[in-house]
Computed example of a mutant assay.
Amino acid sequence: MISTILITLIGLLHVYILVVEMFLWDKPYGLKAFRNTPEKAKITKVMAQNQGLYNGFLAAGLFWSLLANPLYSTVLANFFLACIFIAGIYGGLTANRKIIFIQAVPALITLLLVNIGY
Results as ranks from 00 to 15, higher is better:
residue 1 M to S: 10
residue 1 M to P: 09
residue 1 M to W: 05
residue 2 I to D: 05
residue 2 I to F: 09
residue 4 T to M: 12
residue 4 T to H: 13
residue 5 I to N: 06
residue 5 I to M: 05
residue 6 L to Q: 02
residue 6 L to D: 00
residue 6 L to F: 14
residue 10 I to M: 08
residue 10 I to N: 02
residue 12 L to K: 05
residue 13 L to P: 02
residue 16 Y to F: 15
residue 17 I to Q: 08
residue 17 I to R: 00
residue 18 L to Q: 04
residue 18 L to K: 00
residue 18 L to A: 07
residue 19 V to Y: 12
residue 21 E to G: 03
residue 24 L to W: 13
residue 24 L to I: 04
residue 25 W to Y: 15
residue 27 K to Y: 14
residue 27 K to F: 08
residue 28 P to Q: 10
residue 29 Y to K: 11
residue 30 G to W: 07
residue 34 F to E: 07
residue 35 R to Y: 04
residue 36 N to W: 12
residue 36 N to M: 15
residue 37 T to I: 10
residue 38 P to K: 05
residue 38 P to S: 07
residue 39 E to Q: 13
residue 39 E to V: 13
residue 39 E to A: 15
residue 41 A to R: 04
residue 41 A to Q: 04
residue 42 K to R: 11
residue 42 K to L: 10
residue 44 T to L: 10
residue 45 K to H: 07
residue 46 V to T: 13
residue 47 M to H: 05
residue 48 A to C: 10
residue 49 Q to V: 02
residue 50 N to W: 12
residue 50 N to Y: 14
residue 51 Q to S: 09
residue 53 L to C: 10
residue 53 L to G: 09
residue 55 N to G: 06
residue 55 N to P: 08
residue 56 G to D: 05
residue 57 F to N: 03
residue 58 L to A: 13
residue 58 L to I: 15
residue 59 A to I: 08
residue 59 A to W: 08
residue 61 G to K: 03
residue 61 G to L: 05
residue 61 G to A: 06
residue 62 L to G: 04
residue 63 F to Y: 13
residue 64 W to C: 06
residue 64 W to A: 15
residue 64 W to G: 01
residue 66 L to H: 03
residue 67 L to V: 13
residue 68 A to M: 08
residue 70 P to M: 05
residue 71 L to P: 00
residue 74 T to P: 00
residue 74 T to V: 10
residue 75 V to M: 11
residue 76 L to N: 07
residue 76 L to V: 12
residue 77 A to F: 00
residue 80 F to T: 03
residue 81 L to G: 00
residue 81 L to N: 03
residue 83 C to P: 03
residue 83 C to K: 05
residue 83 C to L: 15
residue 85 F to S: 01
residue 85 F to M: 15
residue 87 A to N: 09
residue 89 I to S: 04
residue 91 G to W: 06
residue 92 G to N: 04
residue 92 G to V: 06
residue 93 L to C: 11
residue 93 L to D: 03
residue 94 T to F: 08
residue 95 A to P: 01
residue 95 A to V: 14
residue 96 N to M: 07
residue 96 N to D: 15
residue 98 K to T: 14
residue 100 I to A: 11
residue 100 I to T: 15
residue 102 I to S: 12
residue 104 A to C: 07
residue 105 V to R: 02
residue 106 P to Y: 04
residue 106 P to H: 03
residue 106 P to R: 05
residue 109 I to M: 09
residue 112 L to E: 00
residue 112 L to G: 05
residue 115 N to P: 02
residue 118 Y to P: 01
